[in-house]
């Protein structure tokens, strides 16, 4: 993927209000794949005793990354929206660690994009969470 297209995608994600609020940064985009990270922040804590980040923030990161992978697919439409997302929380993220999501849009039909996404905290090969989802493909009036 050319650097300018990655830059455009990075700026687009950064301009989405909720993504900005959570501090998401897109690092890679191309041919149905995307990678977005979210730095640790105390305001995102879900468990006050351990300092572990709330699952909801991780869901938002994975949903964004999944949508970005759909839009980067060679047969993408003009826009997309989440139809469904199933999230498995495998383990607690390490407090203080940046969470990185990696999404692959592994199949695209005229109307639906199918996505797998995982989120890691850099401490283990076992993801903190994984999700699969289906996304709408808006193709205008065609």
């Amino acid at each position: 993927m050319p650097a300018d297209r990655t830059e455009i995608a990075r700026q687009f994600i950064a301009s989405l209000p909720h993504c900005e609020a959570l501090g998401m940064v897109l690092t890679t985009i191309g041919a149905g794949e995307a990678e977005i990270y979210m730095p640790y922040s105390e305001k995102l804590i879900g468990d006050p005793e351990s300092g572990v980040i709330h699952g909801g923030a991780v869901s938002a990161l994975m949903d964004t990354c999944a949508g970005a992978s759909v839009m980067s697919h060679p047969n993408a439409g003009l826009a997309t929206a989440t139809l469904d997302l199933r999230i498995d929380y495998m383990r607690a993220a390490k407090p203080g660690a940046t969470i990185t999501a990696h999404a692959i849009c592994y199949h695209m039909t005229r109307a639906v994009g199918f996505v797998r996404v995982s989120a890691t905290d850099g401490t283990s090969d076992v993801p903190v969470a994984a999700a699969t989802g289906a996304f709408t493909v808006e193709r205008g009036n065609s």
């Binding site: 989405l16 209000p17 909720h18 993504c19 709330h54 699952g55 909801g56 923030a57 869901s59 938002a60 990161l61 994975m62 949903d63 964004t64 949508g67 929206a81 989440t82 997302l85 999230i87």
Partner: peptide, 12 residues
């Protein structure tokens, strides 16, 4: 609304 914000709302 962001789908992730809604998912977080339901989880909370």
């Amino acid at each position: 609304l962001h789908g992730g914000a809604l998912a977080a709302f339901l989880e909370v």
